[in-house]
């Protein structure tokens, strides 16, 4: 049997296919849109077709915000447990995780003995410190979201964004423009603001090295660097940081069907 992990996040849906030896043989990512069920179902159908598989050839574990919409899954698990498992695939010595997704951010601490989750913290419903915050700010700056990180690192004097609310922060960005701040410094301030907020949450539960940074926002190099400054140690990032939730779900699916 193979295993599929399907991570339906608020912004992106991720799918990972593992072979019988738990080796990642394929993966897919698509926008979640408003129709979680359809997007997840389409990715699943595509992967089965491309690998000439039928439903009965795979275990399916769903995770993420839309995990309950996947009616073809054998089981479901929260993204917190899934990420913890997924990062250990790449980094067996990982002790902590920071996951910043589209709608929420999480800090997770794992046991050094078992690798199991021993504590976690999630952001509130507020969008600050999430991918959504970054999206709104990149729109305000008129900079593509995938460029805001590299732009930020050119700054020698990051602007100070003090508002913790996304809406107020957007107004603050506009007022910084009015005061003559450069786009580069504002971009740096925005990235720093996310890092500061998430690091504060992570410190409350005692994250420690080796810390793996995952989720869509982990692709942003500036947030990673600022997180390292805030936490006071280096952090690592897997090659595909968006996939750790789906990967972890697939791995847990194997464990459940031993």
């Amino acid at each position: 049997m193979k295993a599929v992990g399907l991570d339906i996040g608020s912004l992106a849906t991720k799918l990972v296919l593992l072979d019988e030896n738990k080796k990642m043989i394929d993966w897919k990512v698509n926008r979640s849109t408003y129709d979680f069920k359809r997007v997840g179902g389409d990715l699943f159908k595509d992967i089965l077709k491309e690998h000439n598989l039928s439903r009965s050839d795979v275990f399916v574990m769903s995770t993420g915000y839309g995990r309950n919409t996947v009616d073809f899954a054998n089981d479901r698990i929260t993204e917190i447990t899934a990420h913890a498992k997924g990062v250990q695939y790449f980094y067996p010595d990982a002790r902590s995780v920071i996951d910043i997704g589209g709608q929420d951010s999480k800090a997770i601490v794992m046991s050094s003995k078992t690798g199991n989750v021993i504590d976690f913290q999630m952001n509130d419903k507020c969008a600050a410190g999430t991918g959504r915050f970054l999206e709104v700010m990149s729109h305000a700056l008129e900079v593509p979201i995938n460029e805001i990180g590299t732009l930020a690192l050119k700054s020698n004097s990051p602007a100070s964004i003090s508002s913790t609310c996304t809406v107020f922060a957007e107004s603050e960005v506009i007022s910084l423009f009015a005061q003559g701040s450069s786009k580069i410094d504002i971009a740096a301030g925005i990235n720093k603001s996310i890092a500061r907020r998430v690091a504060g949450m992570a410190k409350r539960i005692g994250v420690e090295p080796l810390l793996v940074f995952c989720g869509g926002v982990a692709k942003n190099i500036a947030v990673k660097e600022y997180l390292e400054t805030e936490l006071g140690f280096e952090i690592v990032r897997p090659e595909y940081p968006q996939l750790t939730g789906a990967l972890g779900a697939a791995l847990i699916s194997f464990d459940n069907h031993k």
Partner: peptide, 17 residues
């Protein structure tokens, strides 16, 4: 009611933990 999903994740994750 808006944070029902998020609350549910926190509670489920705790039960898994």
């Amino acid at each position: 009611r808006a944070n029902r999903g998020q609350l549910s994740t926190r509670i489920e994750a705790f039960m898994e933990m």
